[in-house]
Design a protein around this nucleic acid. Structure first.
Lengths: 362, 362
DNA sequence: CTGTTAGCGCATTCAC
DNA sequence: GTGAATGCGCTAACAG
């Protein structure tokens, strides 16, 4: 059997209550330094560690928080989790990660176990907006901080990236390269980030007096390379002219690559492509993707700090909303705008000869 | 306050102990169906869920298992976790995921909290072999099943993929395409899987009377695209002749792509490249990567089942070791072996004209 | 079949 | 400054 507090107490020759006080940071001061030392030595000797369940039962705190993500294989989540874990574990909390696999049933089931486990708080990265959202279910379990995505409800604590700044930087970059007609493959409408980036796209175009043709916007209904490919395909099929396309995220941008390849178009000569989020691997694809780098580790860490703040002052009505800065990473998928219109028969011939790496020979 | 068992009992007009029996599957049979119904109704009415900490304290079971992974952003882990979670949650367990970030200190700290939380079992995906391994620390906390990697110690329960079959399929595929000199970028020596794949590579070559030149093997010391790039570079620099290279995993294969690109070599015309593990995105890169598909979800599920078996029969001395079947996915990075030797000035000229997608114009 | 009693390991009132 | 008593919410052994 694992050593109990009683064992430590006996070895130190004190009462269990005294041992408890010695082991606990904030009650330690009431004890004589000598006994504290004796107890600590005894605990070390037995390599005692408190039974977290007994401790939790007595204090009515689990020292556990739940972290809800939709799909762990989306590369932005691991660094978010790392940030959360670093901050939380230092504060004595354990993060219980729940992967909902984007399945409603699964999410509800896991939420029930989180409730059963008396989690002290929740960090949620799966918030949706709109009528189907059901974002109230989270605060019903424990104090909640939203990260990456927000339910857009008043009073919700959230940590997001600065989509406005990011998208403005993208448009500025493309504008400087001479692009005037810039398309956007937008994300699903029930994700707050899609809306934010789309709005910023419109604002940025407006500020530069660039055309804001609705035909320049394709909206996908889920996040996959296939969806991105279909999005760009629909833009091309519409006959709209454009020399650059901004995808809601890197995965959609990879889909744009595929559509261009399938249609004999070259990136970046024919169309410049910009991603978003700096998903893992955006430096490995060809051409290396120009994208907006988001510091997901910091977002996780900030969300954790915000939750700690709420846990320490539950009655503090202030609910902040933090936006973490982003930065543009320019790689090889963007270049100066071609002057002619597209489709143009000369496009491929004008382009410099293929160098380096040959792709998918027919 | 959350409803307690006592509240349910009062509402149902029974003693708390009776309510407990009604709520628990295996004690329910001793009660009159009528009482069971009343208690269940009361529980539903109050939307009661048991306090897991109190339950755990009383039963000396946490109904929690720890899952230790090195780096969540390695794409093979998420499906493993999903498999574990599906099986475990159905059995009433919660998986506590620990991301060690491949840091020893961090791992030890998290292991301590797992111990403190009285986890009932452990699934470990970070086993190393060799003197630095310290694999005993896991069983010291709770019954352990190793997954993905094994400590290679007698009596260790483990779930692995069938590296031998996978590597043999790769060599067979390349052999059929006419390749005779096949290089291998091997993984770090302290990972069991590296050793297994390297051994299978040697065996498969031997069985076909192919040359097993040590100069055909480059060993990397960590798993990154950079390391893969360096690995292939060293093989090329050595002057060894080969028409195909098998990388320990997909990430290393991407590195091989990069080296080839940097040196003006074409894949697959100059060198066929094979990956391993079907990492996310191996269908998105160019050329799409031929690789060995490993069913990581099933590996996780099997590991969970194995652990459940051990938890149910702790004294059963049988410790099995399962190997999950794999399959070869042939894509565009492998083709028939070129006939001439390399480097050959004619190589690029002989190749079919670049089509589709132009890469990184100079 | 159901009520009674005791205790899981710990923190926290009180006394002294 | 330290010991004694009590209870967190639940399950299990024992009655009846």
């Amino acid at each position: 059997m694992r050593p109990r507090l009683r064992d430590v107490a006996e070895l130190a020759g004190v009462h269990p209550a005294t041992a408890s006080r010695a082991l606990n940071e904030h009650t330690r001061s009431r004890l004589s330094p000598e006994t504290v030392a004796r107890v600590l030595a005894a605990a070390a000797e037995l390599s005692y560690s408190p039974n977290q369940m007994a401790q939790g039962l007595a204090t009515n705190k689990s020292s556990t928080i739940g972290v809800i993500v939709g799909d762990l294989s989306v590369p932005l989540f691991p660094p978010v989790l790392l940030g959360i874990d670093d901050v939380m574990s230092q504060a004595g909390y354990t993060a219980l990660i729940v992967n909902t696999d984007n399945d409603r049933e699964r999410e509800l089931a896991r939420l029930a176990t989180l409730r059963s486990r008396q989690v002290d708080g929740l960090i949620v990265a799966t918030a949706l907006t709109g009528p189907e959202a059901e974002n109230d279910k989270y605060p019903a379990v424990a104090p909640t901080v939203f990260v990456v995505r927000t339910p857009n409800e008043a009073g919700a604590a959230s940590v997001l990236s600065d989509d406005s700044a990011g998208m403005h930087a993208v448009i500025e970059h493309l504008y400087a390269l001479g692009h005037r007609r810039i398309a956007h493959v937008a994300g699903p409408a029930n994700i707050s980030t899609s809306v934010a980036r789309l709005r910023a796209y419109r604002e940025a175009l407006f500020e530069r007096d660039l055309p804001m043709d609705p035909a320049l916007i394709a909206t996908v209904d889920h996040l996959s390379a296939d969806a991105g490919a279909a999005g760009l395909a629909s833009l091309l099929d519409s006959g709209t002219q454009f020399t650059a396309v901004v995808a809601f995220n890197d995965l959609l941008a990879y889909g744009c690559y595929r559509t261009m390849r399938d249609r004999g178009l070259y990136c970046p000569q024919d169309i410049s492509v910009v991603g978003y989020s700096d998903q893992n691997g955006s430096d490995l694809v060809s051409p290396a993707l120009t994208t907006v780098k988001v510091d997901h580790y910091t977002m996780g860490a900030e969300a954790a700090r915000m939750l700690l703040g709420i846990l320490r002052a539950p009655d503090d009505p202030r609910r902040h909303s933090i936006r973490v800065p982003v930065s543009l990473t320019v790689r090889d998928s963007t270049t100066t705008a071609r002057s002619g219109t597209w489709p143009a028969a000369t496009s491929s011939l004008d382009a410099p000869p293929s160098s380096g790496f040959r792709q998918r020979p027919a």
